[in-house]
Amino acid sequence: MKNLYLPFKVKIVKTETLSHNVKLFRLKKDKGKFSKDKNDLVFTPGQFVLISLFGYGESPFGPASSPYESSYIDVVIRGVGTLTEALHNLKQGDEIFMRGPYGNGFPLKFIEGKDMVLVTGGCGIPPIAALIEYVRANRNKFGGVYLIYGAKTPADLLMKDRLKKWEKDIKVLLTVDEPDKEWKGYVGMVTELIDDIKINAKNAVASMCGPGPMMGALEKILRPLGISDRRIFVSLERKMQCGIGKCQHCATGDKYVCQDGPVFYFDQIDKNWD
C-alpha cells in the first residue's frame, strides 16, 4: 500500500526576500525532475503542496511557479508561525521535504476561451501567479485577462518583477489600502476598478484567492460586472494535517478543502455555516 503521508526530499536552490516577512523558496527535487500529468503540468494552478521541515511540522502552500516548469517549484512563504519562521532561517542548499500536489486546482478546461478577472490580496498571490503563467503559456486560448492585486501598503505587493513581466500579456491593476507618496494605483477595493475592466460578462469567469479582498471584490467589482456566482472560483485556506481527506481540520460545511477544493465555485461555499 502506498504511504501517502511519506514526503520526498527537495533542495532549496534559491531564496528571495519579497517583503519584510515574505520569502520565496525555489525547490528542486533531490533526483530528477518533478513529474508531469497528462496535460504536461507539474501541478494544476490552485493545487497545493505540503512542505515540511522535520522538527517543525508540515503546512500547505500553493506553488507560484509556472505549472509547465518541471525542474523547480517556487513557494512563497510568509513567516507567521513556527514552521514558516523556521523555513525563513534556511539558506540555499538546505534540504526540506514535500508531498503533493493535492486538491483540485482551478478548472482549466472550463475557463478556456473566456475572459477572466483574477482577484487576490497580499500573500494570496501564489496560486494566481501560477494561473497567470498558465494563461501566458496558452495566451491565445483566453480572452481579456485582468489581475486585481491588493495589499496593505505598496511594500506588501509581492513579485513586483513578475507583475511587470505580466503586463505584456494581461492587464495588471494594483491597489493598496495605505498608499505612500509615490503610489499611482488605486486605493482600496473600489468600484472604480470596474472602469478598467472590459469583459463580456456572459463569457467571463473570476478566480480569487485569499479571504481579505474576497467580499469587497465580490460586492464592488465582480457582481456589478455581471459575473454569476457559479463562475466565480474561490481558493480557500485551511490548516490541514493530512491532505487526503481524513484529519477533519479543513472541513467546511460538507466539503473538505484538501480534497473537494481548495478551489470552489462561490455558490458551493457561500451558504456554508462555517
Binding site: 500500500m1 504511504n3 501517502l4 503521508y5 511519506l6 487526503i244 481524513k246
Partner: peptide, 14 residues
C-alpha cells in the same frame, strides 16, 4: 471504510 476511501491511510492499515 473511512480509512480506505477515498484514499487509504497507510498507518491505519499497517
Amino acid at each position: 471504510e473511512i480509512m480506505k476511501n477515498p484514499q487509504p491511510d497507510f498507518f491505519y492499515w499497517q
